[in-house]
Design a protein around this nucleic acid. Structure first.
Lengths: 199, 199
DNA sequence: ACCTGGAAGTAGTCATGGGCAACAAAGTAG
DNA sequence: CTACTTTGTTGCCCATGACTACTTCCAGGT
């Protein structure tokens, strides 16, 4: 019967352990402070071990960004697909879900956006698309429900998406205090719906 | 008669030379790649010389952020205060000025926002306020002109500000191609004005 | 003129971190 | 059992930020 924390030569789950530790470090200290050697020390492996799983520091960050997009998509869809609620509520819930994700994991979001337009980050770009699709789908449904003016959903939706991103930036930059978050989202959604109302 | 490029022991303008070189490096390679030693080499001074003018790397970045806010304020006010133009035009010009600043100096803007909510960056915070004031003033004028609903200008303006920031993020993240920038701004301003129209 | 103190720049050191290469251990397939 | 592959280790090099002690230069007072 061996103790579960026994130090073995082969860690066995190093890749996922690295990702988990990196995610925590990212949340606590930001991407700039994240050090592969530090992660290795925490986990209890040698400083070169991470290299077997990630070619370099950037590769680890890219992997984080990729899973980040997947998690974001999941949370957006969960918020948007709440049956029974009317469109404004669903819209507000989705925006709230995005902003919460983006403020709780500000450094991760940073990484996600940055990675997207870096050459060679194909995996990340591929992971980004579905998350954005969740937003566009919501716009289309709003048009079908008759509360959003017809036309290219991307053209209309991009403004909503922008506002959402901007609120995030305002919260993270502490231009808006956290306790005014809900109110700000309410105002933004309300103004948006007035701005895109048909007729 | 000494040659102007003569190598003297005292550079004389090292501080401003560092800032200029840093601004260029920031634009070309981003904040992460900016190295004090590299700047020193470019300028032709020893690796420890920058320390006389900036306590550490962060202090240099803070100084960049500070001048960035001042430049932003100047550009925003120039765009907003164009006499003779009607309110929507001035609003659109201001938003365009912001987005142009933010996309041409994406890394700098990053720095500005990041520095603002870092403890000890008092100078940066102080420099940020007037720039934001330029936006709020514009909203107040819109209310006076009767094209924006009355009420707390900050509450109304924060959504505009957020949308502006978001468009920036979308361009920088390459979710929106640069050639659709003007169209996106037009749509956003139009929707905003419809959303906050009195009555 | 001199000298004296401070500002500005230099040289050398240390610690940390990324990246690479050679080696060792552990699993796996034949 | 042996050969191959994967995974982790040790040791190295190099760049950087930060610190200290030393040097050069300038300016102001006498």
């Amino acid at each position: 019967m061996s103790a579960p924390t026994e130090r073995r030569y082969h860690h066995g789950q190093l890749r996922s352990a690295l990702l988990a530790a990196a995610e925590r470090s990212l949340r606590e200290h930001g991407a700039g402070q994240l050090s592969l050697r530090e992660l290795a020390r925490e986990i209890g492996v040698s400083h070169a071990a991470p290299r077997r799983h990630f070619a370099d520091r950037q590769a680890l960050l890219d992997a984080l960004a990729e899973t980040g997009f997947r998690r974001l998509e999941t949370e957006l869809r969960a918020a948007a697909e709440r049956p029974g609620a009317d469109f404004p509520r669903r819209l507000r819930a989705t925006v709230t879900a995005y902003v919460r994700f983006a403020t709780e994991d500000a450094a991760l979001l940073d990484l996600m956006f940055r990675a997207k337009h870096r050459p060679g980050a194909d995996q990340v770009v591929a992971a980004a698309a579905p998350a954005l699709g969740a937003m566009e789908q919501l716009i289309v449904e709003g048009q079908a429900a008759g509360v959003i003016v017809a036309g290219d959903p991307e053209r209309v939706g991009v403004v909503l998406f922008a506002t959402m991103l901007g609120i995030t930036a305002l919260i993270n930059g502490e231009f808006v205090p956290p306790d005014r978050l809900d109110d700000t989202i309410d105002t933004a959604v309300e103004q948006f719906l007035r701005g895109v109302r048909p007729g």
